[in-house]
Design a protein around this nucleic acid. Structure first.
Lengths: 343, 343
DNA sequence: CTGTTAGCGCTTTCAC
DNA sequence: GTGAAAGCGCTAACAG
């Protein structure tokens, strides 16, 4: 039978191949390769050499079966854009130590059926833990408590308050944005944000209003709720500036909205940040750094969030009882030209 | 010993548990649950019932060990944004049939060492295939031919022409953009694009120039190469319009560049699409649909690309010899208001 | 120090 | 129809 050189048919080399060729027993080979110190140096050397020559790769599958742990984690998401899930994945990889643990990424596309399906598959594969990543910060249905592996909810908390969830502190973010504007000498501050049915919109607005109240200030106009689009940012800014020409600061509920607001301000001939300072939300680099001027924004530290979720999974796997309930992770302010003019 | 109700310590139920409780042998239980027809209906019923009661989940790990295939695929990427990798992942999931195959997503972050590390880990885990996703369409180093599993390069082709690669047909895209402008009655067409060291920039430009030549037209000005930013789009458009005020169409090498061009045109009081029609590239929804007017763009059909990559892996796993070399997948034009005014 | 043995959870012959 | 036994690749007791 003729077989192309690149044929896959070659069975993978196993440890017993190595052992046989190195002239030792299976267990000695195992010990030699795993650094157990009950092996004569010369023997170890020979085994390692042989393994290298055969390019032996130990099967994690077999190891997993034996160990009862697979060293894998499932990331169950509905974030179609990947805007949240990728940083979270990176944080998780960091925390797990790349290579030690591998992540199954499953995209449920916002479909409960598909989510159940993926969940089932992950359990079949004996993942050691599951991180559920929502696409907004609204609470989402719990996967339930009767799962054989630890589950952590990231970004979107679970509706069940006894589930462990990690979510950005949006209220602190709203607060931070206003405090920054105030420290820039602004006092006539407005707020444009997205869909009021989103927890993120409400939380950020609450934070902003709280910070204003603490400073003895009032919001200019009402909180402008509508949707998360650039278009709404443009329209809302136009309405606000017409009714309240003395506005000198705008907190926006997203970077997209902020981009829209910047557009309108430019159209109206208001200079940013001199006349009006603008703060966005999410610190979506591609939007923030290409705005003119570049956009000051609140960053949710998603990578940190991913890391935290991974650590929590770790703790749970190790049997340490992890605190349940929602943990809010600090956010941070990234200052750019839309609030402080570059020299 | 007191154990919290949610404790993980409970060993997962195994098939032998099910068999024992259902009062049958291991092998009968296996046959019953796997739909083998050498089982009495009543017995099968009883086993299935028992399995359900115990919420038995068959271990894929054990199955994989036995079958020699794991039903997993590795997605090795350096696309930090996730802009390309997520649609490709989705396409791959579709093609594999969600749940049948699961995908390990590994982010090498553009670091060769980390890539090798991840590759090693994937091979240890006995993935059935690997899809390598680059972040640009430039050729990237091959992982080599001596791997025990099939590898397909998606988006970024391999430098080795004998590796199977799937990449969007950028040249056809450039062509498509120009042809569309011409069909909109434009004849004074310019081209602003990104970094000339990128294959994508060169390929798109080549396609655009080719289509112009075919129509007996010449590009207005030089191809404006620089970088992929919105800022460059603004600057380049300003330069072009000053030197060639009669420009009536601009093909842009990315949606970001197009957004910049649109900004400048508005600043200059040129209306789009009446005075100047603009086409972007990538069809990045969040940018394209929020532009004013909304941006016509070339879509690389990434999900399709993911699907194609997955199918190719499939074929290779099944032993069907897949064609090697680079396959260019068709792109498509998405028409919006920046080339044809909405009524 | 080295080798033999017993599984991890499952599927699959092959007898009964 | 059903069950006993072998074995996927590996590690960990336990003997030598």
């Amino acid at each position: 039978m003729v077989r192309s050189p690149g044929s896959r048919s070659k069975r993978a080399v196993t440890l017993s191949d190595v052992a046989r060729i190195a002239g030792v027993s299976l267990s000695t080979a195992s010990k030699a390769l795993n650094g157990r110190d009950e092996v004569a140096p010369a023997t170890r050397q020979r085994v390692i050499e042989t393994a290298r020559e055969l390019s032996f790769t130990p099967s994690q599958v077999a190891r997993s079966l034996l160990a009862g742990r697979t060293g894998t984690v499932g990331l169950l998401t509905s974030d179609l854009e990947g805007r949240f899930v990728i940083p979270i994945l990176m944080g998780a990889e960091d925390a797990f130590g790349a290579g030690e643990v591998n992540v199954f990424l499953c995209d449920a596309r916002g479909d409960g059926i598909r989510e159940q399906y993926h969940l089932k598959a992950l359990l079949n594969r004996r993942v050691d833990g599951i991180i559920v990543v929502g696409r907004q910060t609204d609470a989402r249905p719990s996967l339930g408590h009767d799962l054989p592996v630890p589950v952590v909810y990231a970004y979107a908390p679970s509706e069940d308050p006894t589930d462990p969830s990690i979510t950005p502190d949006n209220e602190a973010g709203g607060r931070l944005a206003v405090e920054h504007l105030i420290s820039c000498g602004r006092s006539r501050i407005a707020h444009i944000t997205g869909d009021p049915s989103y927890a993120a919109a409400q939380d950020r607005a609450r934070g902003a209003l709280g910070a204003l109240a603490d400073a003895g200030l009032e919001l200019v106009g009402d909180v402008m709720f509508s949707d998360w689009s650039e278009r709404w940012g443009r329209d809302a800014a136009a309405m606000l500036m017409e009714r309240h020409p003395d506005i000198d600061g705008i907190v926006c509920g997203s970077d997209q909205i902020a981009r829209g607001a910047l557009d309108t301000l430019r159209d109206l001939g208001r200079s940013v940040p001199e006349d009006v300072a603008v703060v966005g939300f999410d610190n979506w680099e591609v939007l923030a750094t290409n705005a003119r001027p570049e956009l000051t924004s609140i960053d949710a530290n998603l990578q940190e969030l991913g890391r935290a979720a991974a650590l929590q999974i770790f703790d749970a796997i190790a049997g340490r009882e992890v605190g349940s309930g929602t943990r809010r992770l600090p956010v941070r302010l990234v200052i750019r030209g839309s609030t402080i003019a570059r020299r």
